[in-house]
Design a protein around this nucleic acid. Structure first.
Lengths: 235, 235
DNA sequence: GGGGGCGCAGTGGCCTAGCCTCCTAGACTC
DNA sequence: GAGTCTAGGAGGCTAGGCCACTGCGCCCCC
């Protein structure tokens, strides 16, 4: 009862689709029936009739469950469960109360701290050049009276690249959109761009000196600095 | 001669479904056309005809894209893009399994270490019960001569749940499929299931005692233990 | 009696055809 | 000019049908 409906455009304000309701019902059914990995769901025709929907709509629900990684639909056999009901519960929670801001910051922090540390260990001359270039870009933006959003983005991207860890980089990209919102807010605070740039420099120094621990600490401090306002604002 | 071919059907050896191909094509189309957030895709009837499929099948593909968080289908309006094309590319890469093993382990380690630490701080009685239940399940599997893959999975899931961090949990779901492969390999080593279970117990103790640092350390040690063989084998 | 092959029943895959609801832009009214 | 109405286009969902794949049991042959 805390969340007053997220205005954050990320969420669906619109009408519930039938297949979404079916997903919920199926998850409930799986949980109640104590089904486990390897068990197969009833046949589509049967299920559709029992749930009072057409096969086509049920098929959409099954596609959704498949994408969510809960079932694997096999031609000629049926829809077999991959995971335990607990997973279903987790996913349902995710869908229910959508990701809130602290969770986003938490994920960002986790990933970027690690990336900064790896960057300290693995950076190439090119990576260093890109980081320096990002710092200069942000400096120029600030000098021009701008908030430096672009340079900020460049910097974090350069650090991510310097870490040379493809999966982590992909995960960063995935949450990039969410992070962007918090970033723009933060840089709107008076004096914030300068502070942010200063902590960028600290991170860059630690990375260039190859000091993993220092880089991680610097990044952590930076993100905490950048996130506090957003946290206070919204939660 | 060690493994009689993993029956774990997670890797699709089977037939590609039409809607999956459509997802790929649509992602390509989005990228090529330089579409951004807010843009709407062509009408279903139009799209279906152009792609040479029925509306029902296209609808499945759209559901998949919706679950992946790429589009939002609005009644009466159309399918509007939520993210930038880069995200689409990322997701496609993730699906294509292009990432290499060390990177996967690295990402898993980063996320799970953080999750273990958070679980130490945030666990509820229910979370503890789920963790204990997972430990018992794995013990039973091992006693029965099994490798304990299932109990292992339950345990890591329970820890993820106990961390109560939705975005991090979401990221774990994304790499879950990749992680599964390394997990199964690891547990195939002689004596490994017992070692793994022991380190699970250590993690569980640290979480239950609320010791964040100890939980993080225990999880890190566990993942390093579990990953070394796979790393040596494959890279 | 045992082994192998074949066919059938059941399941999902996908399509066609159609009607409903919802949204929106533009015409119409005041 | 502002508000209202309406028609067309968009997605939502259904019904029914045919095809392809899987698995298992029967039957034939050895």
């Amino acid at each position: 009862m805390t969340q007053p409906i997220v205005p954050q455009g990320l969420k669906r304000v619109s009408k519930p689709r039938l297949y979404e309701q079916l997903v919920e019902q199926l998850l409930d059914h799986i949980e109640e029936s104590q089904l486990g990995p390897g068990d197969v769901l009833p046949a589509e025709r049967d299920l559709a009739e029992r749930l009072g929907v057409s096969r086509a709509t049920l098929a959409q629900a099954l596609v959704a469950l498949e994408v969510l990684g809960i079932i694997d639909v096999q031609h000629g056999t049926g829809a077999v469960l991959l995971y335990r009901p607990t997973v279903a519960a987790v996913i349902r929670d995710l869908r229910a109360h959508s990701s809130r801001l602290p969770d986003i910051v938490e994920a960002r922090s986790t990933l970027e701290v690690k990336l900064a540390g790896l960057a300290a260990l693995r950076h190439t001359p090119d990576d260093v050049a890109a980081i320096e270039s990002a710092l200069s870009a942000m400096q120029e933006e600030i000098d021009a009276g701008d908030r430096g959003v672009h340079g900020d983005e460049l910097f974090h991207l350069a650090v991510t690249t310097a870490a040379h860890s493809s999966v982590l980089a992909q995960l960063m990209t995935f949450i990039a959109e969410m992070v962007l919102e918090t970033r723009i807010e933060s840089l709107g605070q008076p004096g914030r761009p300068e502070q942010s740039l200063a902590s960028h420099r600290a991170i860059a120094r630690a990375i260039q000196s190859g000091d993993q621990l220092a880089a991680e600490r610097a990044m952590l401090a930076h993100i905490e600095l950048v996130s506090d306002v957003a946290l206070l604002r919204d939660v």
